[in-house]
Design a protein around this nucleic acid. Structure first.
Lengths: 120, 120
DNA sequence: CATAATACCGAATAATTTTACGGTATATGA
DNA sequence: TCATATACCGTAAAATTATTCGGTATTATG
């Protein structure tokens, strides 16, 4: 089986545990997209995060399902249909996501001045 | 110059911006160690985070200084001495670090059951 | 019959991050 | 003289993550 993380999460330290669940490139954004509680199909999620390839969304959603942050429903239809929905455990991370979102908004200009070049 | 990040921070989305400042392996832990506001020498930080190599702490501290999360003082002494201290900008991230720490403590057992094998 | 539609998976490659190991500098003290 | 201490840097290798591209399945539609 290809593509398995060696260490699924980091149990050594509570801070690293939380970080390890959300630190890969798109997981925090996926949680943010699913925050409403409505189920979303993979193609919808991709429309909301067009910079992420479908492949990477697929892989990260799979891990989030495994970690219990997101639930998945597969409909036995053709063409195939599936839906992802945030779980209660995933919802419990939303206050953290919210804070990071607000922090980023509040301090955006500092980093735009330092590193930015007007959305290159 | 070796070891420079291609994109220092992610300015495309406020959530990714915040994440990009703290997501690498030890940055959140470093902020947590510096939270008291006391200056710490690199060797002290390493004692607190013994699993991180001095090299990686050095590299991540350098980025955090560049990002303005941490300040650095170099004393012109031999053998060399330097100190790192959290800045106001870095302090403003501490509520987020706190929340992640608490979340990790509260949900540790779920993941310990799922992935753990009694601290291997 | 050929084609689109959808979710997903595999494998190769690229990009990035982390590690391991060694080396610099120089005052101090044995 | 020679080892010690300290912060830091360079390089090569390993490990991890992300990308790219192609392929599977099956029904409905043209």
């Amino acid at each position: 089986m290809a593509y398995e993380k060696k260490i699924p999460v980091d149990l050594d330290c509570p801070l690293r545990l939380t970080m390890s669940l959300i630190e890969s490139k798109w997981k925090s954004c996926i949680l943010d997209e699913l925050r409403s509680g409505n189920a979303m199909r993979p193609s919808e999620i991709h429309k909301c995060l067009p910079e992420a390839t479908p492949r990477v969304l697929d892989m990260q959603l799979k891990e989030m399902v495994e970690d219990g942050l997101v639930g998945k429903t597969i409909f036995p239809e053709l063409p195939p249909r599936s839906e992802y929905m945030i779980t209660d455990l995933g919802k419990s991370l939303l206050p953290i996501i919210d804070m990071m979102l607000r922090w980023g908004e509040e301090h955006y200009d500092v980093f735009e001045k330092k590193y930015g070049s007007k959305t290159p």
